[in-house]
């Protein structure tokens, strides 16, 4: 490593430690640090000053909503840590279904979705308030790595509920998420919704009386008459 190169980079130490270099400069400087012990030693010497800076801010208490949100996601992740079953592995090998008449599609879809649910989504978690119940959604972790969400149903199931999801993959302009109800062996198409750039989505789900399961699949824009594949989200009622 030449003296000249050291002289070129030495002036960048402060900016490097403060995160004020451009991406390209940062990459070059990190490379330089590997070969220049003088700059490495100087960076190590000044690092405690940078480490002290965040401790200069006014101490605040984090709003409780942050903990509720974070621990909600953590607990959802823990519940989904079910080992992938044989059913789940087999489901991954199922071919995409061709178009079929509605009733046959409904029965087939029910089988597909039941297999999908039995395969490895895990059990939904129910919490109850005075008038409403909350069911934790399960996610296909192969397609929704960081998903979380729930279905909140009020006291009257006929009034429906609200499905909230987070961490969902973005959709193209030609796609939509579609909700399905499974009831008495039938799979019934319900609402469609999209998600924000952060992967958050919210939709009402009506007519839940007698429903066994609520599912979400990814469909072409405009929706489908039957699910085109296994669900990405499943809520067992």
């Amino acid at each position: 490593m030449s003296v000249e190169r050291h002289d070129m980079h030495e002036q960048d130490i402060g900016a490097y430690l403060l995160g004020a270099l451009s991406d390209e400069e940062h990459t070059r400087f990190v490379r330089h640090l590997r070969e220049c012990h003088v700059c490495r030693d100087e960076a190590d010497r000044l690092q405690p000053a940078v480490d002290a800076l965040p401790r200069s801010v006014t101490p605040l208490v984090a709003p409780s909503a942050i903990k509720a949100a974070v621990m909600g996601e953590v607990e959802a992740d823990v519940r989904e840590r079910e080992p992938r079953s044989l059913g789940r592995r087999l489901l991954d090998r199922l071919p995409r279904l061709p178009s079929v008449p509605a009733r046959a599609a409904s029965v087939t879809a029910a089988v597909l979705l039941v297999v999908g649910v039995a395969g490895g989504f895990g059990l939904s978690h129910v919490t109850s308030g005075d008038q409403e119940r909350t069911f934790t959604a399960s996610f296909d972790t192969d397609r929704v790595a960081n998903g979380s969400g729930n279905l909140v149903i009020g006291g009257d199931e006929n009034a429906g509920g609200t499905l909230r999801v987070h961490g969902m993959p973005s959709l193209s302009d030609n796609e939509t998420y579609q909700v399905w109800l499974q009831r008495d062996g039938e799979v019934i198409p319900k609402a469609m919704f999209t998600v924000t750039g952060n992967g958050d989505g919210l939709t009402a789900v009506d007519d839940l009386d007698g429903a066994e399961r609520v599912m979400v699949t990814r469909e072409p824009a405009g929706g489908a008459r039957s699910p085109s594949g296994p669900p990405v989200v499943s809520v067992e009622l």
């Binding site: 402060g14 900016a15 000044l46 000053a49 940078v50 002290a52």
Partner: peptide
């Protein structure tokens, strides 16, 4: 850049 480095040193 110089003032960043000098400032961190003094701090």
């Amino acid at each position: 850049k110089g003032r960043m480095r000098l400032g961190l040193d003094k701090l």
